[in-house]
Design a protein around this nucleic acid. Structure first.
Lengths: 185, 185
DNA sequence: GTCTATACGATGATAGAC
DNA sequence: GTCTATCATCGTATAGAC
């Protein structure tokens, strides 16, 4: 019986988190006020604080959401029967970048430099992505290039590292270049 | 005669900006208050506002300072008679990374996603670094690998792009991993 | 659970003396 | 130019009704 109510609760949480992500994408993590999120979500202060302890909690939820979304895309390729070659993999990852989420993603990087909670989320998600990238490249080496599994895992490491770096750089580029719809400082 | 006073003025500005960078490295761009910078610089509110219009102005000065410092290191290699090979160049750039400045650098990336003024600074400095990287790689191709200048400039572009990306990724890694001396959220 | 209204604290910026 | 003291604003979080 708590099943259904829990599901509804999760739905509300997601609704609020998504509104927060939109606000953060527009105005940044710190220049977004609770009032902004209230307006964007169409809810009220009381409702939001019933689902999130405080603003820091909301920031963490937003960080998890955007990073998880990026990991999700990658997971599909890793599980594929015919994994793409590294260059192709990178191209697809770049093509899947959403500018708004890229902005929030880069904001979380900045926040991670001084906020331990966000730092843990970023490190965790980065590690997870790197591991999936490694799986994907290993799969390609074994299934397409017919390497020995043991040797493939070995040589996949630097390749995965490079793909990760190039992807992050592209994410940064997109986040900074994509037009921001105003709200200077 | 305004010469000397201008120099003193610049010195004060630099003193304040450096204090700001230290604060930003510790607590982040937005969680640093003017009071923090006052304490760190050993000056007063009045003095700081005599040299900087407002906090946004200080953030921009800090962004310029850390990015310019990173560009300076690179400039030396580009001008060298025997430019290092790309791998070596990257290794040296990475070795020259200062964790505290890396943190502020990554913070400016986040800020650049929503703050047009900082965005312009980041884009400008990134372009400048990429150009210097390109010069450096071109120099290596011509002077060490004995390529034709025209062809060298052409093939230097993707190499410079790759080195830049790997450097930025390493900067991110350093900024996030380097121990922050507390001040959660 | 959700709303409105509000208290409280923090912070950017200024005024005015020296 | 630099200081101390102060103001005005803004934003988080809570209280209490429904």
């Amino acid at each position: 019986m708590p099943r259904l109510t829990d599901a509804r609760k999760e739905l509300r949480r997601a609704q609020i988190a998504e509104a927060a992500v939109r606000c953060f994408g527009r105005n940044g993590l710190e220049r977004t006020s609770i009032a902004d999120i209230i307006a964007e979500s169409g809810l009220s202060a009381g409702s939001i604080y019933a689902h999130y302890r405080n603003k820091a909690d909301l920031v963490q939820a937003a960080a998890r959401e955007v990073l998880a979304e990026r990991a999700r895309v990658l997971g599909e390729y890793a599980a594929s029967d015919t994994p793409p070659a590294p260059d192709e993999l990178l191209a697809r990852l770049i093509a899947a970048i959403d500018p708004a989420e890229a902005r929030v993603g880069v904001q979380t990087w900045g926040e991670a430099t001084t906020n331990p909670a966000v730092r843990d989320i970023v490190v965790d998600m980065t590690d997870r992505m790197r591991a999936m990238l490694h799986d994907c490249v290993t799969g390609w080496l074994v299934k397409v290039e017919h390497h020995e599994p043991a040797e493939a895992r070995e040589s996949a490491t630097p390749i995965a590292h490079r793909v990760m770096a190039l992807y992050q750089a592209e994410l940064l580029y997109t986040a900074v270049q994509s037009p921001t719809e105003e709200t200077a400082s």
